[in-house]
Design a protein around this nucleic acid. Structure first.
Length: 200
DNA sequence: AAAGAGTCCAACCGCGACCAG
DNA sequence: CCTGGTCGCGGTTGGACTCTT
């Protein structure tokens, strides 16, 4: 059922779309310096870019924002993404919040182009291994972690609830509200499963 | 050299959540 | 409460680039 578009949804036919120019970037950065990175419709209007607020927000968050790291995702970061995705699913914003300087869009793209393939390979590999070790039960922290996810999933638990649920099972603090660098929570989480994803 | 296939990533779209009036 | 405006998120697309044949 199509929703009636609101004024913020880039419906102006004459609005600029497509790649941003250097000039547009500079204008946007200037306006954000003055007005701050909020009230995006206001920012869009003040910048005089003929872009909708949404587009400005995306450009700022994914490209112009200070301290953004671009490209070269390290092995540690990749490992972290894999673990967090295992725990949180496609909650890219939440995952990005744990990787300083990385954006949800970049992580999502990286996942779709690199990691999803690795996961598929790993699953195939596991199935082949399983076929040769059918009767050997394995006990690992990973199993518990997956149980948390699966159990929550069976209960119809939402992503946020799952996050809370898994947090409780790890015994940590609420990692979603205390900033991106809660290394204590992170290390607790990572300790739960040191060798899972060692293929990565 | 050229054409087709594959990959990557910036940007767009749709929708739910939130909030002020 | 209800409504309209706005924000933020995840999914998807399109085009530029690279690789393969």
């Amino acid at each position: 059922m199509p929703m009636a578009p609101s004024s913020s949804q880039c419906t102006k036919k004459e609005a600029n779309r497509g790649a941003w120019t250097v000039e547009e970037d500079q204008k946007l950065a200037q306006i954000i310096e003055i007005h701050g990175a909020r009230r995006w419709t206001l920012v869009a209007a003040k910048a005089g870019l003929n872009r909708c607020g949404k587009s400005c927000r995306l450009r700022w968050l994914n490209y112009l924002r200070p301290n953004i790291k671009r490209g070269n995702i390290s092995a540690q970061e990749e490992d972290l993404i894999l673990r967090l995705h295992k725990l949180l699913g496609n909650r890219w914003a939440l995952i990005a919040g744990r990787l300083p300087g990385r954006t949800d869009n970049e992580i999502k793209n990286y996942w779709n182009s690199h990691l999803s393939k690795k996961i598929n390979q790993k699953e195939k590999q596991d199935q082949a291994t399983l076929a040769t070790q059918v009767s050997k039960p394995q006990k690992s922290n990973m199993v518990g972690e997956i149980n948390v996810v699966e159990e929550a999933s069976e209960r119809g638990t939402s992503g946020e609830e799952l996050h809370e649920y898994s947090k409780a099972s790890i015994g940590g603090e609420d990692c979603s509200r205390d900033g991106p660098l809660n290394l204590e929570w992170m290390s607790k989480f990572l300790e739960t499963d040191e060798d899972w994803f060692s293929f990565a």
